[in-house]
Design a binder for these strands. Structure first.
Lengths: 111, 111
DNA sequence: TCCTTATATTACATATATTTTATATAAATC
DNA sequence: GATTTATATAAAATATATGTAATATAAGGA
């Protein structure tokens, strides 16, 4: 699934750093690889993973392949997390309601 | 790192389903395992991963180990994604500014 | 055309993840 | 105390991920 690949892509610190770099603007593979202690093929693989996850896009520009963030790529992740938090919060609100009722009952019981 | 473990935890569909179930309220290991086609030890391991990632917490209640979501667990992930989106947006805004300037210059050039 | 630059791909080694079966532990119940 | 119930752990198989070194490809420039 797409969520699988996207979350898995974010689980690697090198890939998160690549995304953080790309958030500042487009960059070529070499530019992206330069700050890291890994080889160029390793970066190429990471970029492939990020592309497969829909998190980046690439152009062809002569012999270069500039990468940029795919702004829509984060949306499914954010949506999933937001929904989780929403149902969690709804449940807690319900619990709060129950607790409030119990407290009220106690008050009624012995004022 | 914590982000590594949390994102990796979310990369598995079974674990995401466990979290979705827990968003509705506390549940024991058996209750959590019941809907799935995997064995109980597999679920125990998944829960261990989720706990290691700070996404769930567990109580001891006799022979049962009820699990519940750890509300704070999602925060680092949300923060990371929000920051990425923020710097991405900031950059796009800047680009928009540059484009606006270029457009303006063009206008000035040939009105 | 030859050389260089930018990137991808392959082959391979190593490490990590996922699952199952079998077994251990410890509380609950009879 | 023996048995059942709920869960954890260990061992082993398989799969997947990550990295490197070597090589391929293809565009650009001398």
């Amino acid at each position: 699934m797409q969520l699988d690949m996207a979350f898995a892509a974010l689980a690697d610190p090198t890939r998160r750093a690549l995304l953080a770099r790309l958030a500042l603007g487009e960059a070529t593979v070499m530019e992206l690889a330069q700050p890291f202690a890994v080889t160029q093929p390793a970066i190429s693989r990471h970029l492939k993973v990020l592309e497969g996850a829909g998190l980046i896009e690439r152009r062809v520009e002569g012999t270069k392949r500039p990468c940029r963030l795919s702004p829509a790529g984060l949306a499914p992740l954010e949506a999933w997390m937001e929904q989780l938090r929403r149902s969690m919060t709804a449940n807690y609100d319900r619990l709060d309601g129950v607790l409030a009722e119990m407290t009220q009952a106690k008050k009624d019981d012995m004022p």
